[in-house]
Design a protein around this nucleic acid. Structure first.
Length: 563
RNA sequence: UGGGGGCUCGUCUAACGGUAGGACAACGGACUCUGGAUCCGUUUGUGAAGGUUCGAAUCCUUCGCCCCCGGCCA
């Protein structure tokens, strides 16, 4: 945010501005703190854009810090994947790549300090006892019989915990706060637990006691001089605990500000559920183009810019909300419309024969690469007597308002000629297998044809067409909120069985033959597509990122609804 | 029956005691060699009731509804 008059666009930026004005902080530093136990999804993108975006706007910096306090769940594989995804989104943490495990020694020392102050104790109760004595939402907890051990005994026990003298789960270190607090987080929360294996992905077997997130996070922020620790709503009532630790330790105090996490319609965004989709085979992997993971979106053809625009547009607030996935789609259309090269491809081919066009003749017509961007230039497209057109672009008996091809009607073949349908050829089952036309040689594109027709359709020349595979994706779920389930039901009940449709052969214009993995195109009148890594030299595979807005589909479905 | 949050068009989100605005969606129109893009226009909203005030989405009171918290997860 440029100092002067520009007003903050949300309550977080407002608060930061106020902190700077009041002198509470003289600089801004944030952090993005993922746990390396899974892949990043669009919900994380919101946090990333907020953490990195805000730091940038205030001339500060954003640290990347892996919250790796639980070796039973974490792995370096995820560390690499997370870094890759953040970079892809377009953010850079410079040299500031940190790990909670970097601070284990300091955290240990601070724990000792709290023990010495009589503010922490070793508890020998079992996990079950701990849970039983924590009380309930409405009843206070019961103080542990070990709560008033001497400082000396606590010190000795804690040291022996670190040395590995006790089995996992046998003891914990707890903060001594208030077992009757209405805030359950303050009922003597666990600071350390014993975990002997697996070894930690970075510290190996050096430690067998690991700090709980609640004990680690605030102090890590403090060590790094984080001024604004931005997190999601569920940490709101942990804040008093973090503040208690910081106060008892007398160390630098960051300010935590909570915001609502992202929910998106027609999908799920919890690691647990995403994992089930993968494990139970509903999708092909974490990077399946139907997944809301950043890898999935990337493979689907989403651009970092589209995602950042989306995050910017949904804003930041504390209201629990579900954002219409249509907004994400609108953002990617907006970006791709400006940048994607136009190409022609026919997904469901129907042969079109131009009876009055010379046999064996091939001419080249010039096609715009991007009408939105003249500098993108043009390309030649072969045109000949036998073409493929989209099955959807022909009806033997047209419904009302249907402008496309039907017997007796004229349409323009994009960048080529106006053709008129004369008759059709059917197979034994009565299916139309060939549409026959005549063309008007005076209507070639660019030659100032006076006549206008209602519709222009896309096509490819059959002899030069490249057969390709196209994968059409639809929403993963049938319900806007798949989590909204009846008693005993499961979100998997609402998975869209038709979320993937594979088409082959589709016919692409020759210019597409050399496309590279990841390249994005608009297939005219159909949507945006990108080349999937499954592509081989023999068979290109295209993913449909998103359809174009389709006015006709709307009309057609409305007529169907009223019929 | 405890503690912490939140309620503004269909969906997100602005407003900071002074004309409820924007985006997406929807609807209508213009334009168009993509039924695309673009442009124009229209509809729809302050959870409820009281109070304070010249004036309330905003301040106060009461009520309602929604979300989070009882891991040795984060």
């Amino acid at each position: 945010m440029s100092e002067e008059t520009s007003k903050p666009k949300d309550f977080i930026r407002e608060a930061i501005l106020e902190d700077l004005r009041s002198g509470r902080y003289t600089y801004v530093r944030t952090r993005f703190p993922p746990e390396p136990n899974g892949y990043l999804h669009i919900g994380h993108a919101k946090a990333i854009c907020i953490d990195f975006g805000i730091a940038e706007e205030f001339g500060g910096e954003c640290n990347l810090r892996f919250d790796d306090t639980n070796p039973t769940k974490e792995d370096t594989e995820y560390v690499e994947a997370i870094k890759e995804d953040i970079r892809w989104l377009g953010y850079d943490w410079g040299e500031r790549e940190y790990y909670a495990s970097d601070y284990f020694e300091q955290l240990y020392e601070w724990a000792v300090e709290l023990i010495k102050k009589g503010k922490a104790y070793v508890d020998d109760q079992s996990p079950e006892e701990l849970s039983r004595t924590r009380g309930s939402l409405t009843e206070p907890g019961i103080e542990s019989p070990y709560r008033n051990r001497s400082v000396e005994e606590n010190l000795e026990l804690f040291e022996r915990m670190r040395k590995g003298e006790f089995p996992a789960g046998s003891r914990v270190l707890r903060a001594k706060i208030d077992m009757s607090s209405g805030n359950i987080n303050l009922r003597d929360p666990v600071m350390y637990r014993i975990i002997h294996d697996p070894p930690h992905h970075r510290t190996g077997k050096k430690w067998c006691i690991y700090p709980m997130y609640d004990w680690a996070h605030g102090q890590c922020d403090s060590i790094e001089g984080i001024t604004h620790s931005l997190c999601s709503l569920e940490y709101e009532d942990h804040r008093p605990l973090y503040e208690w630790f910081i106060r008892e330790l007398g160390i630098f105090a960051p300010r935590q500000i909570e915001f609502a996490r992202l929910n998106l319609s027609y999908t799920v965004l919890s690691k647990r559920k995403l994992l089930r989709l993968v494990k139970e085979g509903y999708v092909r992997g974490w990077d399946d183009p139907r997944m809301p993971t950043l890898r999935g979106l990337r493979r689907r053809g989403y651009t970092p810019q589209a995602i950042r625009t989306f995050i910017d547009r949904i804003g930041v607030s504390k209201t629990n909300s579900v954002v219409d996935i249509g907004l994400l789609e609108a953002c990617v259309r907006e970006d791709l419309n400006r940048h994607a090269l136009r190409r022609m491809a026919v997904l469901r081919p129907l042969k079109l024969v131009i009876d009055n066009y010379p046999d064996g003749q091939v001419e080249y017509v010039e096609a715009l690469n991007n009408p939105e961007d003249p500098s993108a230039g043009t390309r030649p497209m072969p045109f000949s007597k036998v073409l493929y057109i989209e099955q959807d672009d022909f009806r033997e008996t047209p419904p009302p308002k249907y402008y496309r091809l039907y017997p007796g009607n004229e349409v323009r073949l994009r960048y080529a000629y106006i053709v008129k349908c004369t008759h059709v050829v059917k197979d034994e089952q009565g299916q139309v297998v060939e549409v026959h036309c005549t063309y008007d040689p005076s209507t070639r594109s660019g030659e100032g044809a006076a006549r206008k027709v209602k519709a222009t359709i896309h096509w490819v020349s059959a002899a030069q067409a490249v057969p390709v595979e196209v994968r059409l994706y639809d929403r993963l779920f049938l319900k806007p909120n798949p989590d909204d389930v009846e008693e005993g039901e499961d979100f998997t009940k609402y998975i869209n069985p038709a979320s993937l449709e594979v088409l082959y052969p589709c016919y692409a214009e020759p210019a597409l033959a050399t496309s590279q993995v990841g390249e994005k195109f608009q297939f005219e009148r159909l949507g945006y597509f990108c080349v999937d890594p499954d592509s081989t030299a023999e068979r290109l595979v295209f993913n449909r990122t998103v359809t174009l807005k389709d006015e006709w589909a709307k009309i057609a479905s409305k007529m169907e609804a009223s019929a």
